[in-house]
Structures are given as structure tokens and as C-alpha cells.
Nucleic acid binder design. Structure first.
Length: 285
DNA sequence: AGCTCAACCTGGCTGC
DNA sequence: TGCAGCCAGGTTGAGC
């Protein structure tokens, strides 16, 4: 039995981050912004250092893997990319290598730590309309826990969005055009849970398969959030590492190891430059 | 429109 | 031990 354990910013990790930082920041006023290295996925807007101080964090929401901090005059969007973490720390704590941006709140600071710099910090002013019009959010699929994706509505979305698509279901699901939040790890896990072969053409999914897949996505993400949520009490300091979700995967990173259901060895293939893990016996086309 | 793939950047692990 | 090579959570955007 292997335990897979690094921090993986898929939807559950972003949601746990949101739940961890929101109680400490909502209603508080930004006192200063430090951009230590703004060369992330896109340049961090330099004028945030001047425009954000004095503004209050009214709410922290999430859309897909984006965190949305609702400020007085707009939204601050934060994406963790592949390696980003957000922590609330005493402002007296020294900066660490790879800390990229900090929002100061008097005694506390919110720090974006991102070694690979694939994360993003962006600004959407209210004057440009509601956050929904932000270009990066517009192409996203529905939220997996929204009423729109509940029950058979979720299956309907997967079924309809996948018609006439020749791409493998693994890549279809990962792209987030139908439902958001399923990253590379939980994608393999969801397909295993649903008993669907990852290389099956999305357009060939049957309606019952879509039903099982929608259910699997909700289940896998919910379990991951629950696992992360259990560490929330330790979230606010450098000791309580929210990355230690202790998520046990059934197929991801288990190449050659016995399937937890049928004991046959787990296979690994590459799809769209990413690893996919699956059981050839339990998952059928 | 949909597809495939390179690219962004750094660190950790493997194997020689 | 040192170092080259390979691999890694996400997403965009170019080229077909």
C-alpha cells in the first residue's frame, strides 16, 4: 500500500487553501503588498503595490482552480499553478526562497510560495464588469459541486459536451471544458472509479458511462477535500503543512503494483504529454 | 473547431 | 560525490 503525499494543486487543494485562509483574511484590510518576484505565468501587475493597500478582502471565492479575492475595486485572482502554495503567517516570519508575492495584513501576511513560477496573480477591476467576464474564467466548464452538475445533470453535461469528440476521455476530462477541477491525478482516479478506459474516445462514451463518471468525479474530489480539510486546524503556520493530505491513490503513481480491486498490475501510458495510470482489467472501453 | 505539442521554470530523483 | 538526464501537480497558445 503506497501513500501519495505531495501538495497537488487540483481543485481539492485549492478549495482547502480557500477554507484555510478565508477566516483569517475576510474583512481585513491590506496594509502592504510586496512583489518579490513578479515573473510568474504572467507578470504580476506592478501597480498592485500601490492600488491594493487600504482595500478590504470582502470574500474569498473559488472558480475552478482560481482563487478570487473580492476587494473594494475589483478581484485579485490567484492561481497556484503546479507548485504554488498560499500560507497565512505572522508577518515577522522571514521570507523563504521562492516566496513570490506577499499581501500584508498588519500582524499577518499571506504568502504565495511558488518554486516553478507557473502560478499567477492577476487583477480584474470592477469597472470591467463581473468576474465572470474575465477571459481565463469564461472558457471553464461547470463546477463539480454546483447544482448544474448534480445527479444526472452532470451526466448530461459530460454526455453532451463529449459528442463528436475524438480525443481520449482522459484528455477531455483533464481539459476542464465540461467540468472543472479534475487535474492529472484525480483524472486517473476518477476514470478508475468509473471503470472507464482512459484511452476511450470521449465521443464514444455511453450515457451510463457518463453517469458513472460524473458520480466518480464528485466522489473523488469530495474525498480529497475531506482529507485536506482534516488538516485545516494546522493550516495557519509553517508547521501545519496543508500538503500532507495523505491521499491514497488507487492507480496514480502505482505502475506495476497490484490493482487494489483485482490485483492485476497497474498500467501507465502517456496521453497529451501527461502520465495516465489505469487497470486494464477494471477499466473497459 | 478541434487536435497535438512546445513552452513556461525549478527541484528532486535516478543512474552512470 | 558529481553530474547529466529525466520527470513532475497546470494552462496557454502556435500551428496544423
Amino acid at each position: 500500500m503506497r501513500i501519495y503525499n505531495p501538495f497537488m494543486p487540483e481543485l481539492p487543494e485549492v478549495e482547502v487553501t480557500r477554507l484555510g485562509i478565508a477566516p483569517h483574511l475576510e474583512g481585513r484590510k491590506v496594509s502592504a503588498v510586496k512583489i518579490i518576484d513578479g515573473r510568474l505565468r504572467w507578470p504580476v501587475p506592478a501597480n498592485l503595490s500601490k492600488s491594493l493597500p487600504g482595500q478590504t478582502v470582502h470574500a474569498i471565492e473559488r472558480r475552478g482552480k482560481y482563487l478570487l479575492l473580492q476587494m473594494d475595486t475589483g478581484y485579485l485572482l490567484i492561481h497556484l499553478g503546479m507548485t504554488g502554495t498560499l500560507r497565512v503567517l505572522p508577518s515577522s516570519d522571514p521570507l523563504k526562497i521562492h516566496d513570490r508575492v506577499t499581501l500584508e495584513f498588519g500582524k499577518f501576511s499571506l504568502r504565495l510560495h511558488d518554486p516553478r513560477k507557473f502560478g499567477a496573480v492577476l487583477w480584474h477591476p470592477k469597472s470591467k464588469g463581473p468576474i465572470e467576464v474575465f477571459a481565463l474564467l469564461q472558457k471553464l466548464g461547470v463546477e463539480p459541486f454546483s447544482p448544474e452538475f448534480a445527479g444526472e445533470l452532470g451526466a448530461d453535461i459530460l454526455y453532451q459536451k463529449s459528442r463528436k469528440r475524438s480525443v481520449a476521455v482522459k484528455q477531455f476530462l483533464l481539459a476542464g471544458q465540461a467540468v472543472v477541477g479534475v487535474g492529472n491525478i484525480y483524472c486517473s482516479e476518477s476514470l478508475f472509479e468509473a471503470g472507464i478506459h482512459p484511452a476511450k474516445a470521449a465521443g464514444k462514451l455511453t450515457r451510463p458511462q457518463c453517469s458513472r463518471l460524473a458520480e466518480a468525479v464528485r466522489l473523488i474530489l469530495k474525498k480529497a477535500i475531506a482529507a485536506g480539510g482534516s488538516s485545516l486546524k494546522d493550516f495557519v503556520n509553517s508547521d501545519g503543512d496543508p500538503g500532507h493530505f495523505m491521499v491514497q491513490t488507487k492507480v496514480y503513481d502505482r505502475k506495476g503494483l497490484p490493482c487494489k480491486v483485482c490485483k492485476s498490475p497497474i498500467s501507465q501510458i502517456v496521453q497529451g504529454q501527461r502520465s495516465t495510470y489505469f487497470c486494464t482489467q477494471c477499466q473497459k472501453r
